[in-house]
């Protein structure tokens, strides 16, 4: 589904990704862990097409498409979804309206018919139920005045609505207390599907207690230096990130 080969990327003068390789198959959940500054968020942003990153070499194939050639909305329409670490506020833009516009843009690109208001509301209710969320967030402007936990929940709800084929969760656990974390993780688990892959980017092993990964990768200095099963996460938790520098150096 996703194939990343030798990815190198710069921010300004600095090379942040230094030859990253990653293969993600359908339905797989991959965790990417690493210390601060290892390039985790950069990787998530490069995949989703954010400006400000210069890819100097390497390739990213997504379902047979050259992902790096595509605009952010084209990637989204192909089924790529980034749950932001810091979701931005959109004052005055109603959450429901926003989601409907996004969903219909995606449906249209897939050649599906646009949902009318009634079917959209029905779908929204259904997804809220699956995630055990109430509808209070939907009447407010997108992320506007949301607490940290509300913003993250809103991201997961958008994911449920847009039904991506590959979801990237960028430090979704940051800033959440344990209850909020559980709600978010439950949401993510409810959305696990044999046809849906996920990349969970995190600093801490904690999130992985709730979202069990199939594969764990350790990112350091812009590349993956170790891969393994979920036990690797536990090992990281015990040993910390200190040893990584030696390996990466």
């Amino acid at each position: 589904m996703l194939s990343v080969k030798g990815l190198r990327a710069n921010v300004g003068e600095n090379e942040i990704l230094t030859g990253l390789d990653l293969e993600v198959g359908p339905g797989e959940v991959h965790a990417i862990m690493g210390p601060n500054g290892s390039g985790k968020s950069t990787f998530a942003h490069v995949l989703s097409g954010r400006e400000g990153y210069e890819v100097t070499s390497g390739s990213v194939q997504f379902d047979g498409h050259d992902l790096l050639e595509l605009e952010p909305e084209e990637r989204a329409r192909l089924g790529l979804f980034l749950a932001f670490q810091y979701p931005v506020e959109l004052p005055g833009v109603n959450n429901t309206y926003f989601l409907k516009a996004a969903l219909n843009a995606i449906r249209k690109s897939r050649g599906e018919s646009e949902l009318d208001a009634v079917s959209f509301m029905r779908l929204m209710k259904e997804r809220l139920k699956v995630l055990h969320l109430d509808d209070s967030l939907l009447k407010r402007p997108v992320n506007f005045g949301f607490s940290g936990g509300e913003k993250k929940r809103n991201e997961i709800f958008q994911m449920a609505m847009l039904e991506p084929r590959l979801a990237i969760l960028d430090e979704t656990d940051s800033g959440l207390d344990i209850d909020a974390l559980r709600i978010v993780a439950d949401g993510v688990n409810a959305l696990r599907d044999p046809a849906r892959s996920m990349i969970v980017v995190t600093h801490y092993q904690r999130l992985l207690d709730y979202i069990e990964p199939d594969h764990v990768h350790v990112l350091a200095r812009g590349r993956i230096i170790r891969s393994g099963g979920k036990e690797l996460a536990l090992e990281l938790e015990e040993r910390g990130y200190g040893w990584i520098d030696e390996v990466a150096a």
Binding site: S48, G49, R50, E51, E71, P72, E73, R75, A76, R77, F81, L82, F84, P87, V88, L90, P91, G92, V93, N94, Y97, F98, A101, A102, L103, A105, I106, S109, P141, Q158, L162
Partner: peptide, 28 residues
């Protein structure tokens, strides 16, 4: 902001629609 535009685009909206949505929100 670039962040607002990118957020909308990463949800599948074309740039022009994103601008229009943000502007309409601004005028709400």
């Amino acid at each position: 902001s670039d962040d607002q535009l990118f957020y909308c685009r990463s949800r599948g909206l074309a740039e022009e629609d994103a601008v229009s949505m943000i502007v309409n929100g601004f005028c709400k």
